[in-house]
């Protein structure tokens, strides 16, 4: 995928999808959100995703075939939910003949934080990773509409993050992932000289839970 081609296409309409936490979808035009839907429940992604996309298209008055870019949050987030949005993004992009762009889901939280709190203060973003752990990343601010990530994404016990960064000097936020913000970041990336983020594999950060079979001995 060539950066200039992607950036001219992204300047048209984009659909943004993220299911790394709840289900959030948005339609954007030139980096401006036309319609957005946010469902917070963490378990209903596969039920919601179809009608959520249908609804933001309708609310924005944009037809599927006008979408030139599908921006998808690639996590980190609980795997089962995360994959629903990524699978949907892949097939929507094929169906609408659109490009696919991936953005780290935590970046959208950072963007929203800095929009509400202008300045270049250090920020720690965390989201629930279950099993008493958090997904986290740190940021130094926003440059040209793109949050500048300094560490992460990673998964740790919250207490252990201190071993990587000085948590006491960092701002934190209660904000959640928002598809509109992901779309804005992808738009900014498409226009910036660094090129697009074409990394669209999920950020899992954990191996599947499974123990290699020892073979033999299954009686009892």
């Amino acid at each position: 995928m060539k950066a200039p081609a992607a950036s001219t296409r992204i300047a048209e309409y984009a659909l943004a999808i993220d299911t790394s936490a709840g289900t959030t979808v948005a339609v954007l035009s030139m980096g401006t959100v036309l319609a957005e839907l946010n469902y917070l429940e963490p378990m209903t992604h596969s039920e919601r995703i179809g009608s959520a996309i249908q609804k933001v298209l309708k609310d924005s008055g944009i037809q599927a075939k006008q979408i030139a870019t599908v921006v998808v949050g690639v996590g980190p987030g609980p795997f089962t939910g995360l994959r629903v949005g990524m699978a949907a993004a892949r097939y929507f992009a094929i169906g609408a003949r659109a490009e696919l762009a991936g953005v780290c889901s935590l970046d959208s939280i950072a963007l929203d934080f800095y929009l509400a709190n202008p300045g270049q203060q250090p920020l720690l973003v965390t989201t629930d990773a279950r099993r008493k752990e958090v997904f986290w990343a740190t940021y130094s601010g926003v440059v040209d509409g793109i949050p500048v990530r300094t560490q992460g994404p990673a998964v740790n016990k919250y207490e252990d993050i201190q071993t990587f960064v000085d948590v006491s000097t960092m701002a934190t936020t209660e904000l959640g992932v928002r598809a509109g913000a992901l779309g804005q970041i992808a738009f900014a990336q498409g226009l910036s000289p660094q090129g697009t983020n074409s990394e669209i594999t999920p950020i899992y950060l954990r191996e599947p839970d499974a123990v290699p079979s020892k073979g033999k001995k299954v009686s009892g």
């Binding site: 299911t19 992604h45 596969s46 995703i49 179809g50 996309i53 249908q54 298209l57 599927a64 075939k65 979408i67 795997f79 089962t80 994959r83 629903v84 949005g85 699978a87 949907a88 993004a89 892949r90 097939y91 929507f92 992009a93 094929i94 169906g95 609408a96």
Partner: peptide, 23 residues
């Protein structure tokens, strides 16, 4: 398998919306 089914369900719904086909 629930997690496996959801991949296909998410993909199929998005394909249906993108193409305007019934599912």
């Amino acid at each position: 398998l629930a997690g496996a089914l959801m991949v296909g369900v998410g993909a199929a719904k998005a394909l249906a919306v993108a193409t305007g086909k019934p599912i």
